[in-house]
Computed example of a mutant assay.
Amino acid sequence: MTPKQKALNINPGLAWQAVSGRHFIMDGENSIASGWTAQKAWENAYRKLAFSRFKTGDLVVMEGCLEASHYAGKVWKCRSDSYEAHSGDYAVFLEGIAGYFCCDYLRPATSEEKQSYRKDGAI
C-alpha cells in the first residue's frame, strides 16, 4: 500500500490540495500535513495519523492478515500507544500477544464489539 492509501485507510475524509507549489493534505478545512511533492505530503500525513492512531487501553480487532482468520471476532486491548518500530512500521503491543503487532492490520473495535468485550468481563 502507498502512504496515500494507508492515510486514507485511517481517515477516508482526507483530501489533497496544492497551493503555490506546496502540497497539503486536508482534513476538512484543516491542513494536517504538507510537503514539496504530493508523495511527501501523503507520507507526512500517514506518519502523523499512524503515530497517534491507537492509545493504551484502546480496543481493536485484527483484519487483513493471517492472524485475523485465526482470531476472528476477538477484541484486543492495546497495552501501548502506537509507535514506529525498527522496521519502520507503526505498531502497538496487545494484551495476550508476545510481540508487537502492526497497526496496518488493526482497526478500532465497533461499539457492539466493545460492549461484547466488556460484557464478557474483560474490562
Results as ranks from 00 to 15, higher is better:
D89F: 09
T56V: 10
T56I: 10
W36S: 12
S80C: 03
Q5G: 06
Y105W: 14
P12Q: 08
L66T: 14
A50L: 07
E29T: 12
P3W: 10
L14P: 00
H86L: 10
E112A: 15
F101P: 09
S116N: 09
A33Y: 04
C103P: 11
R22F: 03
D104Y: 01
I123W: 14
S80T: 13
N44C: 09
Q39H: 08
R47V: 07
T37D: 07
A91V: 15
A50P: 12
G73W: 07
R118V: 14
Q17N: 13
G35Y: 06
G28W: 08
Y117K: 01
Y100P: 11
K6L: 15
W76G: 02
D120H: 10
E84D: 05
T56Y: 05
G73C: 05
K74H: 12
A18G: 08
F93E: 08
V19G: 05
V61M: 11
A38S: 15
L106W: 02
Y90G: 09
S20F: 04
R107M: 09
A109E: 06
I32D: 00
F51Q: 12
C102M: 06
F101E: 00
I97H: 13
A50G: 08
G57H: 04
N44D: 12
C78E: 05
S80I: 09
A18E: 15
A50K: 06
M26Y: 02
T37E: 04
Y105A: 01
A41N: 07
A50R: 09
D120R: 14
G35W: 03
P12A: 07
K40C: 01
Q5T: 09
F101V: 13
D81Q: 10
W16P: 01
N44S: 14
G121D: 02
S69L: 09
I123C: 12
Q17A: 05
P3G: 00
E113Q: 15
M62Q: 13
N44I: 01
K48L: 13
T110Q: 03
E43Q: 14
A18I: 06
G96L: 04
A15D: 09
E113W: 01
D27N: 15
I10W: 11
H70K: 13
A98L: 05
A72R: 15
I25G: 02
N9G: 15
Q5A: 14
F51K: 13
G99E: 13
A7E: 10
L8E: 14
N30Y: 05
N9V: 07
G57Q: 08
